[in-house]
């Protein structure tokens, strides 16, 4: 568990050039960081539910600004789905549904 996340977000927002941000859908195993945004952007992909509902589900599962996230496993075919450590729990999801979760990678 880690509670430094909230402060981190503030730093990242004030001086965004300090780190690398990427979509969780593009992250590889071992990537770790903090969630800085959970959007409801239409990426043109079909998620089976509308984009606002997808955002609410992500939020409900704990994909929320400030949460620590680390990609810990991925599937054999197409590196999909992925398993992430999200704060102190583990969650599995498909990459196509993870595009609206933006993470700021920890600096090595």
């Amino acid at each position: 568990m880690n509670n430094l996340s909230i402060d981190r977000v503030e730093i990242a927002e004030s001086i965004p050039e300090v780190g690398i941000t990427l979509r969780l859908s593009d992250a590889s195993v071992g990537d770790r960081g903090v969630i800085i945004d959970v959007r409801a952007d239409d990426d043109g992909k079909d998620h089976g539910v509308d984009i606002e509902e997808l955002q609410r589900r992500l939020l409900e599962f704990g994909f929320v600004e400030g949460a620590r996230v680390e990609v810990i496993h991925e599937g054999a075919i197409g590196h999909d789905p992925i398993a992430v450590r999200l704060d102190d729990m583990r969650v599995a999801l498909r990459r196509r549904d993870a595009g609206d979760v933006i993470i700021l990678l920890d600096r090595p």
């Binding site: 998620h47 089976g48 992500l58 999801l93």
Partner: peptide
């Protein structure tokens, strides 16, 4: 037609 619903699941 269309995708199945998002697959999101806790790994206990």
């Amino acid at each position: 037609r269309g995708m199945s619903e998002p697959f999101m699941m806790e790994l206990p």
